[in-house]
């Protein structure tokens, strides 16, 4: 049951945003401060509460950590009273939440549609930018005791990672995907007393000693192995390329496309040209990819969005533009300056 659309009014950096998503892969680009991560968190929060007893407003507070847990601080900052409203639509169902900037408690927010929303639960996972598996031991107990000031996605990802591996035969498509992943980080992942290890040719290496990029790929392997990422799940991944050498972007994109073909809806943000181009070059006609650009309107400074099914048609494309600028400067320097050697 893929996420279909979102409507945000006066929420954090957004004045008004309405986006329709692809049931396949949604790739978000945009300069820093255009709300990409916030958008992902809203969608993830909505998906996650479909499977829990936590309220959506409460989940938002734990995901965004406004000071003093004051929900009202998530309303777009402006003078006077204002109301934020959020709506996420999935499979014909809508969950809505609204609150004013005076709201101190999440319980004071108005939520609509949550009961029906929970009648069709959806499995979702949010992979944060900072890899967490290396810091897993005892993290969850500290988090539960409210002893660490971390956003909810850091505890949630560990919950997903610790799920036991599925037993029994793996279907050939998933088996192939797992094998391809294994080749990228050259090993398998094992858990022991909340500590993660990479079992490779070199032996059993604790995650704290493994390269962060490999830990992330190891996490993906775990999530597929333990059934979290299956047909019908939704994956949210903030900057998957962080800490990965560009040589691995191609294989990573391949794996993400395979997940999409297996029925996982994917949302990711990226700052990287190679990531975008790899999707553009590897996508098949049967794949459903949507490129989204968040940008600030030059006149109003409000965040707007643009979408395209092909990368070349996406405007504005700040990543492309940056390369364009570099290219122009290189050519100009050659044409006007010293070029010997």
């Amino acid at each position: 049951m893929p996420v279909e659309s979102v409507r945000l009014t006066n929420f954090t950096a957004f004045k008004k945003l309405e986006i329709e998503f692809s049931p396949g892969v949604n790739i978000l680009i945009g300069e820093n401060g255009t709300g990409k991560t916030h958008l992902l968190k809203v969608l993830y929060g909505a998906c996650d509460v479909s499977q829990s007893t936590e309220g959506l407003a409460e989940k938002l507070v734990r995901l965004f950590l406004p000071s003093g847990n004051a929900l009202g601080r998530l309303v777009r900052r402006q003078k006077g009273s204002a109301t934020a409203s959020l709506a996420v639509i999935r499979d014909g169902l809508t969950v809505r939440v609204s609150f004013s900037n005076h709201t101190k408690q999440a319980s004071s927010a108005q939520t609509l549609g949550l009961r029906k929303w929970r009648e069709k639960p959806v499995e979702s996972v949010y992979i944060p930018v900072k890899e967490m598996l290396a810091n897993a031991p005892q993290f969850r107990s500290l988090y539960a005791l409210r002893e660490v000031h971390f956003e909810a996605e850091y505890a949630d990802i560990l919950d997903r990672a610790f799920r036991p591996l599925l037993r029994g035969p793996v279907d050939p498509q998933r088996a192939e995907l797992l094998e391809r992943l294994r080749e990228t980080f050259r090993g398998t992942v094992k858990t022991e007393n909340e500590e993660f290890f990479l079992n490779s040719r070199e032996g059993r290496i604790e995650f704290t000693l493994v390269a962060e990029g490999f830990r992330k790929l190891g996490l993906l392997w775990l999530l597929i192995q333990n059934g979290t990422l299956l047909d019908g799940s939704v994956l949210f991944w903030d900057e998957p390329e962080a800490n990965l050498n560009p040589a691995l972007y191609g294989p990573l994109v391949d794996i993400l496309l395979q997940l999409h073909r297996l029925g996982v809806q994917v949302f990711l943000t990226t700052h990287d040209y190679v990531m975008l181009r790899e999707f553009d070059l590897r996508q098949k006609d049967t794949d459903r990819i949507l490129y989204l650009s968040l940008y600030r309107d030059p006149e109003t400074d409000e965040i707007q969005h643009a979408t395209s099914e092909t990368l070349s048609e996406l405007h504005p494309n700040v990543i492309q533009k940056t390369f364009g600028d570099i290219y122009d400067r290189v050519v100009q320097r050659a044409l006007t300056g010293e070029t010997f050697g």
Binding site: Y273, R277, S312, Q320, F323, G324, I326, Y327, D328, V330
Partner: peptide
């Protein structure tokens, strides 16, 4: 080649 972007032109150059 319409598909060619500045990044690729730079790389070839």
């Amino acid at each position: 080649l319409t598909d060619l972007t500045e990044a690729e032109l730079l790389a070839q150059q």
